[in-house]
Design a protein around this nucleic acid. Sequence first.
DNA 1: TGCGGAAGGC
DNA 2: GCCTTCCGCA
Length: 596
Amino acid sequence: MKTPGDSGFAFPDWAYKPESSPGSRQIQLWHFILELLRKEEYHDVIAWQGDYGEFVIKDPDEVARLWGARKCKPQMNYDKLSRALRYYYNKRILHKTKGKRFTYKFNFNKLVLVNYPFIDMGSAGSGVPQSAPPVPSGAGTHFRFPSTPSDVLSPNEDLRSPGVFSAVARRMARGSVSDCSDGTSVNSEIEEGGGGAGEERGGERGGGGGGSHSGGGFRSILHPRLSHDSLFRMYGAPPNASHPPPRAPPGAHRVHPDPLSPFPVSPLPGPGGAGLLAPPLSPALSMTPSSHLPYTPSPTLSPMLGSHFSFNPEDMKRYLQAHTQSFKLQPPPLGRKQRDGRPGSSSSGSLSSTSGLGSSMSFGSDLSSAGGSGLVSNSSSSGSLNSAGLPKIKVEPISDIESEEEVEVTDISDEEGDEREEFELFSARHRRERQLNGSSAPPPADDDLDEDVFKAPAPPPPGLLPFFGAEPSPAAPGPPPLKSEPVEPGDGPPAGAPPASPGGTKCIPLKLRFKRRWSEDQRMEASSEESDDKKVRAEERQQQAAERSRHGEGQENGEGQSPPPTPDCPPPPAHRRVSADLHRATAQLSLENKDC
DNA sequence: TGCGGAAGGC
DNA sequence: GCCTTCCGCA
């Protein structure tokens, strides 16, 4: 039987998320609930009721029994089942309708976002939610649930996999329906109801696939990991878009509503009228789109969306607002209790949830400024907009820099981890370093070890900044000489060059001797004079370098940098003279140590 | 009747 | 991750 007649819009078809998780090979409770809700034969057991997404369990024991049958848990009872339902509270998939016995309510926002993170709300098609529970906004809303794979899939994808995934999906649907060997399971019952589903599939695909009914109001992309087809099998075809479920006055609904409108549809005008996600979806939810979160489209998301759909900023904004609020990850790992502290989750809650996003974003921004790019996986929405607590952020030294401005870093929560702190620290340093380099000013005299690490290296090309310099520079100790000329291995006596050990394994003796002599010379000839003219020193070094290279000595470094032992040794005053001496000495030593 | 912690299974 | 089971509490 065709679904509309059957269960009508019991629930958005897309809501079924078969592979939501490892364990999802088994149907999830909320899927199951939806199934029941969808089947008219179960309407005296469980049925939509009241507000959009709200349903009442009329016969808890029976529902439990059915659930137990489905899951092969004969011991199942309502107590346990309700515990499972409560489990959804935290996930915000479901919440309890207070004051109403056995009455719960789906959070479609959550469901949408979890399952279809990239719904394009942009096209303000005129649809109304189809195959969905009571829609509050009736004609007012421009959003409609995708009811068929074609609705949900991008055209490409749709074309891509028809055969394959339909088979798979069928299997999955079936599997989810019955993995219990004791044939008594409801499966069969439900299958029966769904028996029509088989048919409706065809119809669904045909009609929906053609997009004929929708007027093209809705387009979305599925997460790659989802098996598209399977998403829609379980639930009936959507009611014809042209037949939006009639609104019924609250309370006027009946248990077995007219096939085409099992749910009372409340008259809420879709706020914003054009393609607003949340309100139409779940006005009853505490989290409404019209909420407070200021938001700036994420750099990571925008491009993606942009490439696939027409997304208008407003829609994006809305979407992301909702997204932010309903992210699984959003509650920081430890925050759950805290969050619970704020019942209703609406107002204050958003802050913390925002912070998660905010943090990741700000992080990204920092990164980009540092020459890297922050990758925030949004798979999770699954998690990757990761979840759970602090979003795990992968930092890759990619030069592909996202524009910083896209990231508004206004909302940085303090829960950010040390990582962030460190990073900021680093960024700050780096910035400063760049400034310093730019002005050729001497490096700051920070004692901070880290500082050394970062400042030591020559100014890296922007893209390389963050990491290449990590090598600890023993050279740092000395009075920072002209830090940064890119040290070319063989020649100069570059100040920054690592002095000590490494360079010289081969010629240490030479160097040492040279140093000593150099020092002596200095002391003897110019000990009294002082000067910190670094430029001169540089010149001197250059000269030396030149000299040495001329001699073929090439033996790097070593001396150029002020001898470690005398880091505080003031630069030679009578530079020229000393220089000459040095040259001489160098030559001499070179000869002496040719074999070195 | 409903909530949520805790432990454990898959 | 998603329950299932048990339990104490309100």
